[in-house]
Write a protein that binds this DNA or RNA. Structure first.
Length: 686
DNA sequence: CTTAGGG
DNA sequence: CCCTAAG
């Protein structure tokens, strides 16, 4: 079941043009939107990824035998590895599920864990309404997709990922990434508020792959729930991820809420149609009030969950929330102590803006610095030491960005697509996002630091006690933004929301959480650790992904940000700018040329019902084609009439049988006449 | 939400 | 396909 659900999920984020044509169109419009009906529309929030985890996992796996799940995960991953295997098969293949289960965790257990976690989550929370919200947001926003790259590149990326160094000058430099990244200090809010159980959101949705080097781990967490047509079960994002066994999450509420945003295939007919119809509206709203909505979303959601809101309403809210999360691209960062010994090992090799850490160095670091013991216990001590070190050298602050959030991606991919194609698609999307114009925002204690000329010292960042309050955000680069709206909005939206976003994404803890077997116990520690990470630097964890693994990784180091070198080619394909900027706000639907059969059905329906009854036509002939709205049908009819009137030479695209065109003209003439007649009759009566 | 019509 | 006005 879990696997099946996979498909349901969509990739929240930038849409990858299925075709050049679509791309052009999208570019022209500056907006993208892809929806999938018969194909699986998955919305995944990508949390990036990174490969770095792989290395860590490798090391970790050996150490942490206590996690039965890992093997499963491995097995699972391997399954996915088969690039030639159709996605559909992959997902629906019972055998796959079984295998995965056999490896250590039965599917049932898997589910139970998720449920349990979820349940626990809510219970502990004490805020019945709040927990779900957090979960959903985190899930939707947070998703980890690993295995975006090949094993090799993967590793490299991971290594370099997110290393951010802040010099005394105040100049921030991403050693590892070309991308602008923000360090996300998500967890802080939660901690402060205390409403959310430790490690709440992120853990649930994100996980790490303990896959070995060979296997390219792919973590895909859905942002929310995806419903797959034919399946009533709601899947939680966690189910997608391998680590989810440890960190299952997502509340039912989420599923419902998201139904509107995602593919509501499972929903009832009426509901589906409603949601679909509302889709545009939602998008519209998002576009115009994205930021505002985003800022308010969290709160709204919270109350909504408690209250008795209409499903649709909730779904919309969720959409907003989701959008928000997408827009906010918080990065988690880790502060590293600048220590000579560490520095050496950590030192990265830069190449084309990407920083790589030599494997040796990494391993060394990992082995030396971090205890192999999985679990929080090791963290505190190591951190303390590091902290001390840090203090000794307060003149330099090293920050490591462990992960960054990728804007929502919409990926449409046929069920028959191969895993390899799926990977490529995701890769392209991620690459595009990364390449998109982004800038870094610095948030200190919830406040945006706008003065770029201030030194870290002046700002207070130089002091470790301040560091815990330091956060980074990714913001659309207005200069590159194609859309005025985005550019204009970006400045305030992200900033204003900073605090909330942070709260919502305890990404690092989550990741760590995954790995840890005893989630409940670990959570508290993890969160603490994550917080501390911001303040303190851990040399061990920082440079080496390996190191990050269980102990440290749990805390914060886990989530690495991959800054790929990879997607260069892909970039050409994708309209990066638009996507990175505003794609989330309004994504154009994918173009779906009408097939002859569809035209036939349309013509037939119109012949029967006449023009002007597009809703009926839709229900009559395209009820199952969810991607065809009545507006689409109306438009198609319009184009058909036009096509029928022009000479065959002037017609473009897939030729429509002349016979059909003739019928179009006939029907159009007939119903036009009827309309006129009726109108005249009305006039006469009046 | 539906229609209708321009873009 | 999108967007919007209008009902």
């Amino acid at each position: 079941m879990v696997l099946q659900k996979w498909l349901d999920y969509g990739f929240n984020g930038y849409q990858v043009p299925a075709t050049p044509r679509a791309t052009r169109s999208a570019r022209r419009r500056g907006t993208f939107r892809k929806r999938q009906e018969d194909k699986q529309l998955c919305t995944f929030d990508l949390l990036a990824t990174v490969a770095g985890n792989l290395l860590q996992e490798k090391d970790t796996s050996a150490t942490s035998s206590n996690q039965p799940t890992e093997k499963d995960q491995y097995g699972f991953v391997k399954e996915c590895e088969d690039a030639n295997k159709p996605l559909k098969d992959e997902l629906f293949d019972e055998g796959s599920c079984d295998r995965r289960s056999s490896s250590g965790l039965s599917s049932r257990e898997y589910d139970q864990n998720c449920s349990l976690k979820e349940f626990t989550h809510t219970e502990n929370d004490g805020h019945s309404g709040f927990a779900p919200m957090v979960t959903s947001s985190s899930c939707s926003e947070r998703f980890v997709a690993e295995k975006l790259m090949n094993g090799k590149s993967h590793i490299e990326t991971e290594n370099c990922a997110g290393k951010l160094e802040l010099g005394s000058s105040g100049f921030a430099e991403f050693s590892g990434c070309k991308l602008d990244g923000g360090i996300d200090k998500v967890t802080d809010e939660q901690h402060k508020i205390g409403r959310v159980p430790n490690g709440t959101g992120s853990e649930m949705c994100s996980f790490e792959d303990p896959s070995d080097e060979k296997s390219t781990p792919v973590l895909i967490s859905s942002g929310g729930n995806a419903k797959l047509s034919g399946f009533n079960d709601n899947i939680h994002c966690s189910s997608l991820s391998r680590g989810c066994d440890n960190v299952p999450v997502v509340s039912r509420d989420d599923d419902e809420n998201f139904s509107g945003c995602t593919h509501p295939s499972t929903t009832t007919k009426s509901f589906t149609s409603i949601t679909r119809m509302g889709d545009r509206r939602i998008r519209k709203i998002l576009a115009s009030k994205y930021w505002k909505a985003a800022s308010e979303t969290k709160v709204d959601t919270f109350y909504n969950n408690n209250g008795e809101l209409k499903p649709i309403y909730q779904s919309r809210k969720n959409c907003f929330k989701r959008q928000k999360s997408q827009m906010n691209i918080p990065l988690k960062k880790r502060k590293l102590i600048d220590r000579s010994s560490v520095s050496d090992s950590d030192r990265c090799i830069r190449s084309n803006g990407t920083c790589f850490f030599p494997e040796r160095g990494m391993h060394q670091v990992a082995s030396g610095s971090s205890p192999r013991i999985r679990g929080a216990p090791g963290l505190p001590s190591s951190e303390a030491r590091q902290h001390t070190t840090l203090q000794s050298r307060d003149s330099h602050v090293k920050l490591r960005i462990k992960s960054f959030r990728v804007p929502e991606l919409f990926i449409e991919i046929p069920e028959t697509a191969t895993i390899g194609s799926l990977k490529r698609t995701v890769m392209e999307a991620v690459t595009a996002i990364l390449r998109g114009g982004l800038r870094v925002g610095v948030v200190l204690r919830g406040k945006k630091v706008r003065d770029d000329n201030k030194t870290l010292l002046q700002t207070g960042i130089s002091h470790d006690n301040q560091l815990d309050a330091l956060g980074f955000t990714l913001e659309p680069n207005s200069s590159q933004s194609l859309h005025p709206i985005c550019a204009a909005d970006s400045p305030r939206g992200p900033h204003a929301e900073m605090p909330k976003p942070l709260t919502r994404y305890p990404s690092s803890p989550a990741v760590a959480h995954q790995r840890t077997q005893d989630t409940s116990d670990m959570l508290p520690e993890l969160q603490v650790a994550s917080l501390r990470n911001l303040v303190e630097s851990d040399r061990d964890s920082a440079p080496s992904p390996t190191n990050t693994s269980p102990e440290k990784g749990t805390t914060d180091s886990k989530a690495l940000v991959a800054v790929p070198e990879m997607g260069k080619e892909a970039l050409a394909v994708l309209p990066v700018h638009q996507k990175s900027k505003c794609s989330e706000i309004a994504q154009r639907r994918i173009r779906r040329p009408f097939s002859v059969a569809e035209v036939e059905a349309l013509v037939q329906a119109v012949e029967k019902l006449g023009t002007g009854r597009w809703r009926d036509v839709k229900l009559r002939a395209f009820d199952n084609a969810k991607y065809r709205t009545y507006v689409d049908l109306k438009d198609k009819w319009k184009t058909l009439v036009h096509t029928a009137r022009i000479s065959p030479q002037q017609r473009r695209g897939k030729p429509v049988p002349q016979q059909l065109l003739d019928r179009v003209l006939t029907a159009h003439a007939y119903w036009s006449q009827q309309q006129t007649k009726q109108h005249s009759d009305t006039c006469l009566l009046l």
